[in-house]
Nucleic acid binder design. Structure first.
Length: 561
DNA sequence: GCCGTTTTCGGCCCGACTGTTTTCAGTCG
């Protein structure tokens, strides 16, 4: 079993850190860029290596391709082993302390012989830092706090967390800040806006007539554990639970430029700025400049427009060719929130009542969802497990009224091919939702009912590949969204490119505040999916359903004028 | 170490904030 993409990326990042400690200027960033690129690949590196295509990965040139190849073949890398031998592991640890970068870690190591976090703590206690150039009382206190935190567990801010966990936090921050008098615009930028699966921190941007009031409200958020820094335009806090949140208040003329800049990705921005340079322009977080003159900045549309580009949806800003597409008008029209018109996969609780059935129907009508597929039972190995009481099924049918379709579905665990329990066929189910656990790759008899959906699965490319083959053969869609039992955006992209339609869950049977629809829709957009590529979206030509009335971060649609 | 519709060499984003500074270095994003 070879190394995963994540493992290879981790080793490249380690090389970058070690080269940083050696004072290298540009190599570390080159290794990090290659690592970022590899982390976001939609398929395994081994496939690239087989095709001899490692160097087609952005940021991977001759030298890194050779090192990746060595890692894939042997599981280790002589170059990395040499670096590890030269630099004590504890020095890397030091560099990861907040407020300690490569320069400081290197000084600890070479000037003071401090080779780890606990050695640093001892040195501080022994007063060895006093009188050393660059270390005054405040800095030493900061370091003492940092080493204390480090010894009682990993630094809380370092971990990225799933976007669906961060979503409710983001929503409550927006709710509070939008209520502050004088606030005009508030948006969350960063990887959250790009709908990345995992989010490291939140970047909040605002415009306001009285910035101080916004900062005060921000500092006073109930979840704030610590205010890390506060300046005239920027404040950083850490919430209980460790999530770091940055707030910047900018002037309205620069809001679009700031939103663009802080949404990233880094690689997207680097390419955008180099495009600007070719045109004799300069882009920064304040605007697009020709010489001293600002020619754009208030909206993102203006910023991209000033560079001759169409507005690029945040979910596509990963430097995967989107800038060239925006220049030539070839950007896809991504699926939008109002496009979802059907829900194929609803589970009601086992003890659901007629009232639950009525509530589901009412919610579908409120959200203008015209088809709701309810799972009536599970078929597994020739057995049949009903999921809902007969009265509930009757209540569903009775309360639906005109204009709502309520087909029943059966879930099949494992391969549905040749599976014909009599109960399944008499259950009223119209279609199957197949759960690959896994599916056999051989072709056999056709399933007893149409398979519309593959659901409750996710995982690495080698698990997803065979499932996608079966989905395509059956004409089934695959369910995407947050969690380990749905496909993430990289897998969704693979599916889309293989011609397999995507299914976006609407969270119809969940709490109205559940972010599953927004998150899954973000993944679909990240995968580059148009409405036609989402199986449960409305037909082309039909009007969009009215936007559901949910509180929270607006979807990142094109800027309105 | 990577990269190129002005380049196979010479660039590589850049501004805010902090702490220790008398004009700046380091870190961070």
């Amino acid at each position: 079993m070879g190394l995963s993409n994540e493992e290879v990326a981790a080793r490249l990042n380690e090389i970058a850190d070690l080269l940083d400690l050696l004072g290298e200027r540009f190599k570390p960033e080159a290794y990090r860029r290659a690592a970022r690129s590899i982390e976001s690949l939609p398929e395994g590196l081994a496939r690239f290596a087989e095709r001899g295509a490692l160097r087609t990965i952005p940021g991977v040139g001759e030298a890194i391709a050779g090192k990746v190849d060595e890692l894939l073949r042997t599981g280790s890398l002589a170059y990395l082993e040499k670096l590890r031998a030269d630099i004590p592991a504890g020095v890397l640890e030091l560099m990861r302390l907040p407020g300690v970068g490569p320069k400081t870690a290197r000084r600890f190591w070479t000037e003071l012989g401090i080779e780890g976090t606990s050695a640093l703590a001892e040195a501080i206690d022994a007063g060895r830092l006093e009188g050393v150039k660059g270390f005054a009382a405040k800095k030493i206190a900061q370091l003492r706090a940092a080493t204390g935190r480090a010894t009682s567990g990993p630094a809380p801010t370092s971990a990225r967390r799933p976007i669906e966990q961060v979503w409710p936090i983001a929503r409550s921050i927006l709710d509070v800040l939008r209520g502050v008098p004088g606030v005009r615009q508030v948006e969350i930028a960063g990887s959250f806006r790009r709908a990345r699966e995992d989010v490291g921190d939140l970047d909040v941007l605002a415009t306001a007539t009285a910035p101080a009031a916004v900062f005060d409200a921000f500092s006073a958020l109930a979840a704030v554990q610590e205010v890390r820094l506060r300046g005239p335009t920027k404040e950083t806090v850490v919430l209980t639970g460790g999530l770091q949140v940055d707030l910047r208040v900018v002037e309205p003329e620069a809001f679009g430029a700031a939103l663009q800049y802080f949404t990233g990705s880094k690689d997207h921005n680097v390419r955008l700025r180099s495009l600007a340079r070719e045109q004799g322009l300069k882009v920064n977080e304040y605007g697009v400049y020709r010489g001293e003159q600002r020619i754009a900045g208030a909206t993102e549309e203006d910023v991209y427009g000033a560079l001759g580009l169409a507005w690029i949806p945040p979910e596509l800003r990963e430097d995967r060719g989107e800038i060239a597409e925006a220049a030539s008008g070839r950007l896809p029209r991504l699926v939008e929130p109002g496009d979802l018109a059907e829900e194929w996969h609803v589970h009601l609780p086992r003890d659901a009542t007629e009232r639950d059935a009525a509530r589901l129907v009412a919610e579908a009508k409120r959200r203008a969802i015209g088809t709701v597929g309810v799972v009536v039972g599970v078929a597994e190995g020739g057995g049949w497990q009903p999921q809902l009481a007969a009265e509930v099924l009757t209540a569903l049918q009775r309360s639906r009224g005109p204009g709502l379709r309520l087909p029943f579905a059966a879930e099949t665990r494992g391969d549905p091919t040749g599976l014909v329990p009599a109960d399944l066929l008499s259950s009223g189910a119209e279609y199957l939702i197949a759960v690959p656990e896994p599916l056999s790759s051989r072709d056999a008899a056709p399933p007893p009912l149409p398979v519309r959906l593959l659901a409750h699965f996710g995982g690495p490319p080698e698990v997803i590949g065979p499932a996608l083959d079966r989905a395509r053969a059956w004409g089934a869609a695959v369910e995407i969204g947050p969690g380990s039992d749905r496909l993430d955006s990289a897998a969704a992209r693979t599916a889309r490119l293989a011609g397999v339609p995507l299914a976006v869950p609407t969270g119809l049977a969940r709490s109205p505040d559940d972010p599953i629809e927004a998150v899954a829709l973000g993944f679909a957009r990240r995968a580059g999916a148009s409405r036609a590529e989402v199986a449960n979206a409305r037909d082309p030509g039909r009007p969009p359903r009215p936007a559901p009335k949910v509180r929270g971060p607006p979807r990142s649609g094109p800027p309105r004028r």
